[in-house]
Design a binder for these strands. Structure first.
Length: 883
RNA sequence: GGGAGUUUAGCUCAGCUGGUUCAGAGCAUCUGCCUUACAAGCAGAGGGUCGGGGGUUCGAACCCCUCAACUCCCA
């Protein structure tokens, strides 16, 4: 006995293990066409969230389809070492054990980091299996494993030797909590309520009558000790008398010049701007223009250093409060105002970003990025949806140099070695650095002990940008079989948020090292949000646990549910209702299977003509959908492809086809119909398999005898054949009859058990005769009669409906409300009159006839003819009803 | 301040180059059904002057202008 509802839990684990045991996901180069996808490596710190679910479901759909199409499908999984996030986790873990990071040596710390990685790093990949992901797990890579690590180092050395990497002072986004620089992309701007503080600076050497002070407004009073000047707009009348004078910083009494610059906004604050080059990017730029000194008063952890002279050791935010008090006491504080402004915070630690001057490593982007820019704009690499090309352009037209150093330990340590005099030697390792020194500088007395390696590691993206090459060892062995076979990969599925700092950079690296983009298509998914449109996040607690969802609704249900409403590039408003719909779909498929499975075949039964008609129709419908699905896939409209399949299975196959051919209760079915139905079912399962891998495998295995180690995973994906348009049109008309008769029954509240007589007024009874038994089966009619003219009495005892120019009468004698019928018919007539008139107006418009395409005009003529026939029938109907 | 995107049924979204039966789907709602595959279901129904205004066109949800609201990116 097959269960009445589909129970995914029992089935999913069994088939996933079966797939693994039979190595269906394993790929090695052969003479087939490759289809390659590299996973966007999730952070080792990550656990599966809804975004991963969506992203990986789409990848799996693409990969499974390609595999069924006979391509050598290879989906490479792996994880990313995520230096900042992981280091933060490890530091936290150490803290719990009572260990302070700074008490450890670098090597000791790294041991803990590896311990953490080995313990938690693989979790997310295990979770992907529950989703059904058909990755080649033997190829699992990690950005810190030796081969990938070495590739990163090699690339650094190579780019340095090519003159693309330099070391320079830059204003960077400093995360005082993480103790590292973060990229612009990792800074989240937040609007914060702040205090705008008005401070009086005494004018040096002020004479009797003139104002003794200049007032400036700032949100960062704690940085006044780092001021290098006060700037005013040269056109500002209020301050013209101060040009060339000097002001005195309160509390520390240091003199600074008053300078003029058009940059200063006259109507913001007081029009006076304190210039602090070390602690603000705009001020830094001003400082360069005006040749101002740079005075950095902050330590890396955000506390004030001795250069501040006062408040040394205090945290910047504590100092901000303290200094307001001090200024008040000294009489320099004018007032404070509430003020909202945007403040950058670190994506990883949440700390307020401190603009900071520091010595960092940079990669020049102008030359390197050119091919990547051009080849996206000319569609060599296609973005789906294409609207993201705009965003890509705005970023790539003027790329900033990439700050690639991070002040962390977890990651690839920068292979730069300093001699005692500060000379930089870049080499793969200390040994090679020493050789280089000895050979190039002829300093043969040098030893490794005389070289110190740079303390910093490389930005995680500096390893991620090599991912499509490094997973195939494409940088270490550029001529190996793997990289030559799999590269360039086909499709990349990722989020638009990382279009710039990952996707663009992979394309850059691809052109630099392989002369070719790393993929042909980039499918950009949306962000998964909750019902209220908020991004799902752990802190909000608004994200369901994907594994719970899988447990509750089945992996197939979750997969289809997520895809129902997720057009490419659009955010997905997640609602558990979607997943429920997916679960219901699984159940529908399951029950169709139960029905078919329950039939007994009687091979002695003759072929049934009416069934052959239905088979012909469904065959046409199937082929039409296959054509549509191919087209949708080619445009990466994955969600629409799923919807087309959903409708084909639910509406066309279950609601129509199965009802049409279903034998009466406990009656056997003939061989021909059974065979055709099993064939259809098999094709439908193959068609749905990329979306719902588990249930389709279960049914596919059971619907026919299978050889051991056969699988739907490697069964052929159905290909569209010629569509019989004629039969589709006839059935459309047939379904319209069915639906109209049912509607009559419904509106008149007539029991389905009451058989109703149907009369068809038509000049072509032949069109309907073949469908008679099908009509009877679908709507319980007692008789079907054809007339060329219907007696008034019978007409007035019937409800009628029109399909094209044929009129159908359902006799429900005794239950007819003549008045109501007349009102309805009049309404119908009025509408058709109006419709005819509008069509007539169009056709009598010379410009329309002259400009519109012939087929458009032909359609209008047809509409006119249909409307006129309808009007004729409706008028007759009114007469019959005695109106 | 600069740029981009969005605005279509109660909700979430389709609607690809302007032209089929006068705008589609799913969910939700309403009506009637436990009809022996499925109530996680079946059969039906209602619901939108396509954000507002203007324009181009024989014809606009779709093209142009303008206004508004929301979202995102950059400064």
């Amino acid at each position: 006995m097959i269960s009445k509802t589909y129970a995914p839990q029992e089935i999913e684990e069994k088939w996933y293990q079966y797939w693994l045991d039979n190595q269906f996901f394993k790929s090695t180069p052969d003479d087939r066409e490759p289809y390659t996808v590299v996973i966007p490596p999730p952070n080792v710190t990550g656990v599966l969230h809804m975004g991963h679910m969506l992203n990986n479901t789409i990848q799996d759909v693409l990969v499974r389809k390609a595999r069924m199409e006979g391509k050598n499908a290879c989906w490479v999984p792996g994880t990313d070492h995520a230096s900042i996030a992981t280091e933060a986790k490890v530091v936290a873990m150490l803290k719990e054990r009572g260990i302070n990071k700074h008490d450890l040596t670098r090597d000791e710390f790294l041991e803990y980091a590896w311990e953490w990685t080995h313990k938690y790093g693989g979790i997310i990949l295990q979770q992907l299996r529950k989703l059904g992901a058909s990755c080649d797990w033997d190829r699992t890579r990690f950005t810190m494993e030796p081969d990938l690590h070495d590739s990163v180092i090699d690339v650094f050395v190579d780019l340095y030797n090519k003159g693309q990497i330099y070391r320079g002072v830059r204003m960077v986004n400093w995360d005082p909590q993480g103790g590292t620089a973060v990229s612009d992309e990792e800074v989240i701007t937040k609007e914060l309520q702040q205090k705008l503080v008005y401070i009086n600076y005494k004018i040096a050497g002020a004479q009797g009558q003139e104002a003794d002070y200049i007032t400036i407004a700032t949100v960062r009073p704690e940085t006044i000790m780092a001021d290098a000047a006060i700037a005013v707009n040269p056109n500002d009348e209020r301050y013209k008398h101060l040009h060339g004078r000097k002001a005195i910083i309160p509390l520390i009494n240091r003199e600074i010049p008053i300078i003029t610059d058009e940059y200063v906004t006259m109507d913001f604050g007081t029009g006076g701007l304190k210039v602090t080059p070390a602690h603000d990017p705009n001020d830094y730029a001003l400082g360069i223009t005006h040749n101002l000194p740079v005075l950095d008063i902050l330590n890396d952890d955000g506390t004030l250093n001795e250069k501040a002279q006062i408040l040394v050791g205090q945290d910047r935010f504590v100092a901000r409060k303290t200094i307001i008090k001090l200024l008040e006491e000294s009489g320099n504080l004018v007032k404070t105002e509430e003020y909202k402004s945007n403040v950058g915070t670190s994506e990883r630690t949440g700390a307020v970003i401190e603009p900071k001057l520091s010595l960092q490593w940079f990669l020049k982007m102008d030359e390197l990025s050119k091919p990547a820019f051009k080849n996206v704009m000319n569609d060599t690499v296609q973005l789906h949806p294409a609207k993201f090309k705009n965003m890509y352009r705005s970023w790539m037209e003027n790329p900033h140099d990439w700050c690639i150093s991070r002040q962390l330990w977890w990651g690839q340590r920068i292979p730069a070695f300093y001699m005692q005099d500060g000379t930089i030697i870049v080499a793969k390792n200390k040994h090679e650095a020493l050789e280089k020194v000895q050979h190039e500088k002829l300093l043969f007395a040098m030893t490794e002990a005389d070289l110190t390696q740079d303390e910093d590691v490389l930005d995680t993206w500096f390893s991620a940008w090599l991912w499509p090459m490094s997973v195939f060892n494409g940088l270490k062995e550029p001529d190996s079989g793997d990289i030559n076979y799999y590269y360039p990969t086909n499709d990349l599925v990722t989020a638009p948020e990382i279009l710039f700092f990952w996707v663009a950079r992979m394309i850059i690296a691809g052109y630099e090292y392989r002369g070719e983009a790393p993929f042909k298509n980039v499918y950009l998914t949306g962000i998964v949000r909750d019902k209220l449109g908020r991004k799902m996040s752990k802190s909000l607690g608004n994200s369901p646990d994907p594994l719970d969802l899988i447990e509750k609704y089945g992996a197939d249900g979750v997969r289809t549910g997520m895809l129902f409403s997720s057009a490419a590039g659009n955010d997905l408003m997640f609602d558990e209702k979607l997943v429920e719909q997916g679960r219901n779909f699984s159940n529908k498929v399951w029950n169709a299977f139960r029905l078919v499975k329950g039939w007994t075949v009687d091979s002695s039964l003759p072929r049934v003509t009416q069934n052959e008609l239905s088979i012909g129709w469904f065959d046409a419908k199937l082929n039409q959908t296959l054509t549509d699905v191919e087209d949708l896939f080619s445009k990466f409209r994955i969600s629409e492809a799923l919807q087309a399949i959903y409708k084909l299975i639910w509406d066309d196959f279950c609601s129509q086809y199965l009802e049409l051919i279903k034998p009466a209760f406990e009656q056997p079915i003939d061989q021909t119909t059974f065979e055709a139905t099993i064939n259809f079912f098999e094709k439908l399962m193959s068609l749905a398999h990329p979306f719902m891998p588990f249930i389709t495998e279960e049914i596919w295995q059971d619907i026919r005898e299978r050889e051991s180690s056969a699988s739907i995973c490697i069964a052929p994906f159905p290909k569209p054949e010629v569509v019989d348009q004629q039969i589709l049109a006839s059935f459309e008309e047939f379904f319209e009859i069915i639906s109209n008769v049912r509607n009559v029954r419904n509106t008149k509240q007539i029991s389905p058990k009451t058989a109703l007589p149907l009369t068809i007024k038509t000049t072509l009874p032949d069109r309907f005769q073949p469908f008679e038994s099908l009509i009877r089966k679908m709507v319980n009619v007692s008789t079907i009669a054809y007339v060329s003219d219907l007696p008034d009495t019978e007409s007035s005892a019937s409800i009628s409906f029109l399909i094209k120019s044929d009129e159908f009468f359902v006799n429900i004698a005794g239950q007819i409300d003549t008045e109501q019928e007349i009102t309805n018919t009049r309404k119908d007539l009025d509408y058709n009159d109006g419709f005819r008139d509008s069509v007539l107006k169009k056709l009598s418009n010379e410009k329309f006839v002259a400009n519109a395409k012939p087929d458009v005009i032909e359609r209008e003529r047809q509409k006119l003819a249909d409307a006129e026939a309808k009007i004729q029938s409706l008028k007759q109907r009114l007469t019959d009803l005695g109106a």
